[in-house]
Amino acid sequence: MKHLTQDDKKRLKEALDEFDHAFDTLLDVWMNPSKELIYSADVLNQLKSNQKYPFHTRLQELNISEWIDASKREIEQL
Score class of each variant (00 low, 15 high):
residue 28 D to V: 00
residue 22 A to R: 11
residue 77 Q to H: 14
residue 12 L to W: 07
residue 32 N to P: 03
residue 43 V to I: 14
residue 6 Q to M: 09
residue 2 K to I: 13
residue 46 Q to M: 11
residue 27 L to M: 13
residue 9 K to S: 09
residue 7 D to W: 03
residue 1 M to P: 12
residue 57 T to M: 12
residue 2 K to G: 03
residue 24 D to M: 05
residue 16 L to S: 00
residue 59 L to N: 06
residue 48 K to T: 10
residue 61 E to P: 01
residue 25 T to K: 01
residue 32 N to L: 06
residue 52 K to Q: 14
residue 71 S to E: 08
residue 23 F to C: 01
residue 28 D to Q: 03
residue 11 R to G: 02
residue 76 E to S: 15
residue 42 D to R: 14
residue 11 R to A: 14
residue 13 K to T: 04
residue 74 E to K: 11
residue 53 Y to G: 04
residue 37 L to Q: 06
residue 13 K to R: 13
residue 32 N to V: 02
residue 15 A to V: 01
residue 31 M to V: 02
residue 57 T to P: 00
residue 1 M to L: 10
residue 52 K to C: 13
residue 35 K to T: 04
residue 68 I to D: 02
residue 70 A to I: 04
residue 43 V to Q: 06
residue 58 R to D: 12
residue 5 T to H: 14
residue 24 D to W: 01
residue 13 K to D: 02
residue 40 S to W: 09
residue 35 K to F: 11
residue 9 K to A: 12
residue 62 L to A: 11
residue 17 D to E: 09
residue 58 R to H: 15
residue 72 K to Q: 15
residue 70 A to R: 12
residue 50 N to G: 12
residue 62 L to Q: 10
residue 74 E to L: 10
residue 58 R to G: 13
residue 14 E to N: 09
residue 22 A to L: 13
residue 1 M to F: 10
residue 56 H to S: 11
residue 14 E to H: 03
residue 78 L to Q: 10
residue 54 P to W: 07
residue 30 W to C: 00
residue 41 A to P: 03
residue 37 L to H: 09
residue 24 D to G: 04
residue 41 A to S: 14
residue 12 L to R: 06
residue 5 T to N: 14
residue 8 D to E: 15
residue 75 I to P: 08
residue 25 T to R: 02
residue 36 E to Q: 05
residue 10 K to V: 01
residue 47 L to S: 12
residue 9 K to C: 10
residue 66 E to P: 02
residue 9 K to G: 11
residue 65 S to C: 02
residue 30 W to Q: 01
residue 16 L to C: 01
residue 52 K to Y: 15
residue 50 N to A: 05
residue 47 L to K: 14
